[in-house]
């Protein structure tokens, strides 16, 4: 071993460590600042800006901003709305897309290739292109409202839960992820179950789905993030306060509020659960993001 071949890796690892640490500061400082500011009254936030104290929970620290959030807006309602909307979208999305993928990947029927090709072709269309036509269209759709014991008919889906859920259930990318995963499961399993007299739906439910944990997790995460963060669509379709999801609630809160401490508290409240989920299921999150690379 020559001297250089020993020295180079050491020098390299020092450079790597320094670079990585500088970048940690760059990526972490706004988040630390948000969390710390959420604990301080506005006067103190601004007094601390010029020093390191801006990043330290010191001085007049309390949860007053957090209680302020609950006092000023129906925050619990916003959270429940978002949990409901993302929960139902995930559950129905997994069911609908995996069944379709099963039909595409494991069953033989005419037109299969055509349908699959069409589904994949829609992946290139960004939602932003469709938002306005979709808005016009859902406003024409009929909806039924339970009014006591009678069903009332009304035109338009605006300002409902369903308009925030149903358009996002069928998802070409989720379907494609399931399709890929199902196609990798040995076909002999189906044949064996057929011999035992199982129907196709039973095979889907008892053979294929129980083997598809990783695909289900990926689809759940990739459905959850945009549902929880959704902004453009609810901005256009939701008017009533009681139907607002968290992000629309945040903007509304910001508009009626000049206290940055409280805005930071609201922001922390909707960020911490997602960060906690990410830390708990880090492997799955990373794999889900990486799997979006298959789109290319």
């Amino acid at each position: 071993m020559s001297v250089t071949s020993i020295a180079t890796p050491t020098k390299r690892s020092v450079v790597v460590t320094v670079l990585r640490s500088v970048l940690v500061v760059f990526f972490a400082f706004p988040i630390v600042f948000m969390l710390v500011s959420s604990l301080k009254p506005d006067l103190q936030i601004f007094a601390d800006l010029g020093s390191w104290r801006a990043f330290l929970p010191v001085g007049d620290v309390s949860f007053a901003n957090y209680t302020g959030v609950f006092d000023r807006v129906p925050f619990a309602r916003f959270i429940l709305n978002s949990v409901l909307i993302s929960g139902v979208t995930i559950a129905l999305g997994i069911l609908v897309n995996s069944m379709a993928a099963f039909a595409l990947a494991r069953l033989r029927w005419r037109g299969r290739g055509l349908v699959l090709g069409l589904v994949l072709a829609t992946l290139i269309v960004p939602f932003e292109t469709l938002a306005l036509p979709l808005l016009w269209w859902v406003n024409k759709l009929p909806s039924f409202e339970a009014d006591g014991f009678s069903l009332a008919f009304k035109q338009g889906w605006l300002d409902t839960y369903q308009v925030q859920i149903i358009p996002f259930i069928a998802n070409a990318f989720s379907m494609y992820l399931f399709y890929q995963y199902f196609a990798s499961i040995p076909r002999e399993l189906d044949e064996a179950a057929r011999m035992d007299g199982a129907g196709w739906f039973a095979i889907y439910r008892t053979v294929i789905m129980p083997l598809s944990g990783p695909a289900i997790a990926t689809v759940a995460i990739l459905t959850f993030l945009p549902a929880w963060n959704s902004y453009l669509w609810p901005l256009m379709v939701v008017q009533s306060e009681e139907l607002r999801p968290v992000m629309i609630g945040l903007q509304y809160f910001f508009q009626l509020n000049t206290s940055w401490g409280q805005v930071m508290a609201y922001s922390s409240l909707i960020t911490i659960p997602v960060v906690a989920l990410f830390l708990a299921f880090q492997r799955s999150f990373i794999n889900s993001i990486a799997s979006s690379g298959v789109k290319g």
Binding site: F27, I31, N229, M247, S267, I270, T271, V274, V275, L277
Partner: peptide
């Protein structure tokens, strides 16, 4: 971490 923080936040 910033990726799991919503763009609105």
């Amino acid at each position: 971490l910033p990726v799991v923080t919503s763009m609105v936040v």
